[in-house]
Design a binder for these strands. Structure first.
Lengths: 112, 112
DNA sequence: CAAACATATGAATATGTATTCAAGTGTGAG
DNA sequence: CTCACACTTGAATACATATTCATATGTTTG
């Protein structure tokens, strides 16, 4: 840890995992994908159920779920013909709730 | 609330603000931008200081800061010739910490 | 006012990616 | 085995966006 100019606390905590974090955030940065995450946040739900609920094509939902699964944000479980997806852990929910809190944070009129 | 098929708890909580949340998440979904956010997370820091620290061009940092400011994730404050930026509130930090916790969450070998 | 410094902005480019469509794989029923 | 159903996958396309370069704006100092 000697030859780096950056020795701040931030870098010690997460400089190494910034790319991982960025990947995860960009997963949630798409409207369709975020809706899909919300759909399977509390309980497993099938692909077609998600598609119906969100009025997205089943193909699109499947594409997104593949990305979310690769990023370990959701887990898949087969039940007969259907495949059920559920959020991987509670941290996902925490992240969303924190961000929602940020949105509802009061802001002064001057910053815009 | 009658003509929508979707009446789940999730939709009641955040269906309306999904686009806002997605915008914020995509702000953090870029490596350079996430690094910039981390740089100004705890204390105000000037544009050129960020650029030096992260080895990014000043122009690029400025472009990103403009987006982050528009998304209300950072605030700007002029001090003489320099402009200092700082994270808008603590929720930003919470979001990052939660996501870091998600990354370090143990996962079974079967899901990949 | 001019010069030097710090930041911002606009256009151009290159790269990424969300969505669609068509076809493929896997699974249970008859 | 064959059919219908649920989901997956690949290619094609359209659109967004990160980065660079050149230039402009704003600020302090002489």
């Amino acid at each position: 840890m000697a030859d780096k100019a950056n020795t701040s606390i931030n870098s010690l905590i997460s400089e190494e995992l910034v790319p991982q974090l960025a990947d995860l955030f960009s997963m949630m940065g798409d409207t369709s994908r975020l809706r899909i995450i919300l759909s399977c946040l509390h309980e497993p739900i099938s692909v077609s159920h998600i598609a119906d609920q969100l009025e997205l094509s089943q193909s699109l939902v499947s594409h997104h779920l593949r990305l979310l699964k690769a990023a370990r944000m959701v887990r898949a479980e087969r039940r007969g013909k259907q495949v059920f997806y559920v959020a991987a852990d509670q941290h996902v929910q925490c992240v969303i709730e924190d961000m929602a809190a940020h949105v509802s944070e009061p802001h002064s009129v001057e910053d815009e």
